[in-house]
Each structure stands twice: as structure tokens, then as C-alpha cells.
């Protein structure tokens, strides 16, 4: 049952992303002011949602579960690592799609806006997390260091979310998750936006699952190699 569900996430997310692209490109109308550039709204906010809230939120929760003695397991460490790896990809895609929208709208590819800057800092922070994981160390030592770093880095997420409220920024305020919880988008545009959130969240779930499985296989392979090496040394020692 679980395997079937896991295997169905990939194709389902691909179909939903395709439907989102079709609705976004051919069914929804162009904007009165922004023209066709408004169609980026069907990928950019969904990618930001996945990167900032789902991926790094999941990394923070898994890191916390690892650090808590009762739930300490390397599975949470692997899940956090997978979430960050995919999250970094989505963060970079968020910055790229935002930049593509910013060029015709603001007149520049990049501006030193509070939200843009804090998002870029977050991407660099989590690149640092991935670099930290590559430092050779015993599995639990690496897991502990990574978990602490992930929690310290995740502090940046609420700063990014509230940056458009705390500081004067060029970036528009939240369309859906605004303080009044009243979305400022309607009709087919709102439904397509909602679908994009579901599609990209499922895509993230599939990518994390695959990344987690690869990491598990790699560690099993490492353990098997280690067992073979120990057996070989023992055999050498047993020889007269």
C-alpha cells in the first residue's frame, strides 16, 4: 500500500504540474498591466512555498526530532538532508523566476529588497548546511552538527515571511497568506494558483522520497563495504 502510494506520487505530481502549465499558459487571462508576465504567478509563489515553508520547515522539524533523545534516529537526519537538498533547488528556482518577473516589472534583474536579500541569504545558509554534511565524520556526529545548524538557519524563514511587513520593500505583500487571510486573487486564476501549490508540493514530496531512498541505499552500501573490509582483516589475522 505504502509502496504503491510512494510510486504514484511521481506520476501524479508530473500530471498536476502539466495541468498547471496548461491552465497557466492557455486558460487563464493575461493581466491588464503586466500582460503575460502574470503567468509566472503560477510557478513562483508555489516554488517559494515549497522552498521556504515546506522544505526548510520539514528540515527544522526533522532536525528537532533528531536532537530530541526519545526520537533520535538517523532516519530523521536523512529526511532533513533530503528536504534541504530539494529545498535549495526550489529556493534557487524561486530567485530565478522572481528575477525573470522583476526585469520587465521593476526594470532590474535584481534589487536589494529585504525579501529578495533574505531569501538569497537563506539559500547560501542551506548551501552551507550541505557543505557541512560533506565533512567526514561519524554518522551521529554529522547528524548532530547538521541538526543544530539547520535549526539556527531556519530562524531566517519567519524573517523572510514578515520582511514585506516589517520593512518597506518592492516585493508585493502576500497574495494568499496575508495578515487578514483574505486572498487578493479570484476565479480561474485563484484555482490555478491553488493547483500549482498542490502540484509543486507533491513534486517536492516525490523528490524527497527519491533522495531519501538514494541516501539509505548509499549508507547500506557503505555498511556492507565496511563489513567486507572487517571480514577481510579478520581473515588476514586468522592466517598462520
Amino acid at each position: 500500500m505504502r509502496t504503491a502510494l510512494r510510486k504514484s506520487i511521481g506520476p501524479l505530481s508530473a500530471v498536476l504540474v502539466a495541468v498547471t502549465a496548461w491552465l497557466g499558459l492557455f486558460v487563464t487571462p493575461a493581466d491588464k498591466d503586466q500582460g503575460d508576465y502574470v503567468r509566472l504567478v503560477y510557478i513562483h509563489p508555489a516554488m517559494a512555498w515549497v522552498a521556504l515553508y515546506v522544505a526548510f520547515g520539514m528540515a527544522a522539524v526533522c532536525s528537532l526530532l533528531y536532537l530530541w533523545k526519545r526520537t533520535r534516529s538517523l532516519r530523521f537526519d536523512r529526511l532533513a538532508a533530503a528536504a534541504v537538498e530539494v529545498g535549495v533547488v526550489f529556493t534557487i528556482l524561486t530567485l530565478i523566476t522572481g528575477s525573470i518577473w522583476g526585469r520587465p516589472t521593476w526594470g532590474v534583474w535584481w534589487t536589494w529588497d529585504a525579501r529578495l536579500t533574505s531569501t538569497a541569504v537563506l539559500a547560501v545558509l542551506f548551501l552551507g548546511y550541505l557543505a557541512l554534511r560533506r565533512v567526514p565524520a561519524e554518522a551521529h556526529v554529522r547528524a548532530r552538527r547538521s541538526a543544530v545548524f539547520a535549526l539556527l538557519a531556519a530562524v531566517n524563514v519567519p524573517i523572510i515571511h514578515f520582511s514585506v511587513i516589517w520593512w518597506q520593500t518592492l516585493h508585493q505583500g502576500a497574495t494568499v497568506l496575508n495578515p487578514n487571510l483574505s486572498p487578493t486573487i479570484h476565479g480561474i486564476m485563484a484555482w490555478t494558483l491553488l493547483l500549482s501549490f498542490i502540484a509543486f508540493t507533491l513534486l517536492f514530496a516525490w523528490m524527497v522520497t527519491v533522495r531519501y531512498e538514494i541516501e539509505t541505499l548509499r549508507e547500506d552500501d557503505h555498511d556492507a563495504d565496511l563489513a567486507v573490509a572487517i571480514a577481510a582483516r579478520k581473515a588476514e589475522g586468522a592466517q598462520p
Binding site: 547560501v124 552551507g128 557541512l132 567526514p136 545548524f149
Partner: peptide, 16 residues
């Protein structure tokens, strides 16, 4: 202290 031993710290610490 997060960045590990001296061999990795010199390159890793600035990134972190």
C-alpha cells in the same frame, strides 16, 4: 565548533 576539525574549518567556516 560546528565546522569540525581544523582541516575543514578553514574553508567551511566562512560559508557557514
Amino acid at each position: 565548533s560546528l565546522a569540525g576539525g581544523a582541516s575543514t574549518r578553514s574553508t567551511l567556516l566562512p560559508i557557514l
